[in-house]
Computed example of a mutant assay.
Amino acid sequence: MSDAALFTLDGEDVPFEPGETILQAARRAGRYIPHLCWHPEFAPHGSCRICTVKVDGRMGAACTVRAASGLDVQSATEELNAQRKTLLQMLFVEGNHFCPSCEKSGNCLLQATAYQMGMEGPHFEELYPDRRVDASHPDMLLDLNRCILCELCVRASREVDGKNVFAIAGHGIAAHLVVDSESGRLVDTGFAATDRAASICPVGVILPKRRGFVIPIGQRRYDEGTAADADRQEAS
């Protein structure tokens, strides 16, 4: 890596390898950029826009913009964090997120990122959409109330499991997660509890049955640290 393979992130130099995105390079350097739909196992998706940064004064998703020498990247600014907070507030009101009763509380990336951004309430009027819970599968539960349309389960099922169990249907506010069966029920697909798609959901949509609340409070992923702490630990 040459001395020129550097960009600045909030005024500090960050080295990068050829082909890395801004987000990848930042994580490797121990620098946190908030994100929801990005995952190290898959190609960048750029759908949630939580990782939006300013690159030489122009907005771009840190998970898709390639790092380049001399870029001036801003992330931890009041403006960008306010935008992230607004996006998170919109995600909370578009679904039915009742954190105190959710099995993923303490292990939920959406919840942890909201804390990280200082979100104290939904701000917008809650929509309370009528979404179903699919308990048809013998081993897994599908609670569509919490889906944030990150498409991680879609990509995992397609690219790792080779099954194409999940897809996103509809557009805009009507977009929703569907399963590949005539009945629309998870039990009528080839989905298995051992699939990568069964364990990749960052929120509480895809859950194993008969294992509820097995991790005690205080030992969950974000109980002892922030989303930034967990991200740095995973990247190291």
Score class of each variant (00 low, 15 high):
Met1Thr: 14
Asp10Lys: 13
Pro15Leu: 00
Pro18Gln: 03
Thr21Pro: 01
Ile22Gly: 05
Ala25Trp: 02
Ala29Gln: 09
Ala29Met: 07
Ala29Asp: 05
Tyr32Pro: 01
Leu36Arg: 04
His45Val: 08
Gly46Ile: 02
Cys48Ala: 11
Cys48Asn: 08
Arg49Tyr: 12
Lys54Thr: 02
Val55Pro: 08
Asp56Trp: 01
Gly57Met: 01
Gly57Thr: 05
Arg58Phe: 04
Met59Asn: 11
Met59Cys: 00
Met59Val: 01
Thr64Arg: 15
Val65Leu: 15
Arg66Leu: 15
Leu71Arg: 01
Val73His: 07
Glu79Tyr: 06
Glu79Met: 03
Leu80Gly: 02
Gln83Lys: 10
Arg84Ile: 01
Leu87His: 11
Phe92Arg: 02
Glu94Met: 08
Ser101Glu: 05
Glu103Met: 06
Lys104Thr: 04
Leu110Val: 12
Gln111Glu: 12
Gln111Lys: 02
Tyr115Ser: 05
Gln116His: 15
Met117Ser: 10
Met119Arg: 02
His123Gln: 13
Phe124Gln: 04
Pro129Gln: 02
Asp130Cys: 06
Val133Gln: 10
His137Glu: 05
Asp139Cys: 06
Met140Phe: 10
Asp143His: 06
Cys147Lys: 00
Ile148Cys: 13
Glu151Ser: 15
Cys153Ala: 11
Arg155Val: 14
Arg155Ala: 13
Arg155Pro: 02
Asp161Cys: 00
Ala169Thr: 13
Gly172Trp: 06
His176Glu: 15
Val178Leu: 08
Val179Trp: 10
Asp180Val: 03
Gly184Asn: 09
Leu186Lys: 06
Val187Arg: 15
Val187Cys: 14
Ala193Cys: 00
Asp195Ser: 00
Ile200Leu: 09
Val203Ser: 15
Gly204Arg: 11
Ile206Phe: 07
Leu207Phe: 05
Pro208Phe: 10
Gly212Trp: 11
Val214Thr: 06
Val214Cys: 03
Val214Ala: 03
Ile217Phe: 10
Gly218Cys: 07
Gln219Tyr: 08
Arg220Phe: 11
Arg221Ser: 05
Asp223Gln: 09
Ala230Pro: 06
Asp231Tyr: 00
Arg232Gln: 04
Gln233Leu: 12
Glu234Gly: 14
